[in-house]
Design a protein around this nucleic acid. Sequence first.
DNA 1: TATTGTTATACTCTATAACTATA
DNA 2: TATAGTTATAGAGTATAACAATA
Lengths: 167, 167
Amino acid sequence: MSQPPQPSHSLDPVQLGAYFALIEVAGLLRHAVEQQLREAGDLSYVQFQLLARLGHSQTGSHRMTDLADDVVYSRSGLTYQAGLLERRGLIARTTSPDDERGVTATITDAGRELLGRVMPGHAELIDELLFQQLPREDAQALADLLAPARDHMRSTPPRSAARRRRR
Amino acid sequence: MSQPPQPSHSLDPVQLGAYFALIEVAGLLRHAVEQQLREAGDLSYVQFQLLARLGHSQTGSHRMTDLADDVVYSRSGLTYQAGLLERRGLIARTTSPDDERGVTATITDAGRELLGRVMPGHAELIDELLFQQLPREDAQALADLLAPARDHMRSTPPRSAARRRRR
DNA sequence: TATTGTTATACTCTATAACTATA
DNA sequence: TATAGTTATAGAGTATAACAATA
């Protein structure tokens, strides 16, 4: 084996610090937000994400597989969460018109209503915890810094690898 | 009630995008890292964090309460995780010398050894997923953007509030 | 034969409350 | 009386594998 030991793979202190800060900020933020969502609408964060995706889409609908890829990491996990949402009448599931195997989830009026009821407090909390500390132009900078990493992680390596392994 | 509606609390699209990107990047990153840690050392992320805190400290020790505040969100959660680590001989718990109520956790040689064994693959993964997409100076910028938010969330609002509520 | 989604199941993690011991 | 830590317990969430139905 003639590869160099692993000189490029070690993280320098700056990178390590950025990584830990990222994990910690997101963890604290998510923890706080989960409490708010639970209190305001009895929603877990995943359930909120599902409602938000559906609510923001043009049709209010998505296929289960797409939701699983976007929001959750396993299909059975999505089935579980979607079941909870459906039981509460916040989404509806119907077989997809174009593919009889597929299931299309659609947000209901009640779902939109709940989303609208939860969102203001949600935004307020995010604003308070994150953006009060961050000048507006820094929010843009943060988004720009994270976008390429997100795109890379969404597309390429570990998720598809895990998916392949699973079959 | 004469407060203004909530004009300053709504997030603009840039902020909303930054927030979602942050949550998503951290979530994907953490998910990938959790698999690596599980495979490389049969560690959960929290367990890794505990070992890392202890390993990076000068003495190799910390009080349980400090660890709970840093890494985990409830004391019983820490007791559980510390119990798992102790059972595997990766940490040791002793009553604190200065305060007989306290418990001091210390990383063992086996714990250091495992940390050392897990760390290269960990760094490699972070590098691949995050920093290959991020020029070095951007890593610094990211750390600088996140630091004030981290400090703010660590200190003030929801954790201490929750802690007070708990009593 | 491959893919979609669900189900059954087992497991990990987390939090609440009650409890013990020390300050 | 307050604090540190543990224990018991219960609940939520996740993943794996087996399965049914459609492509």
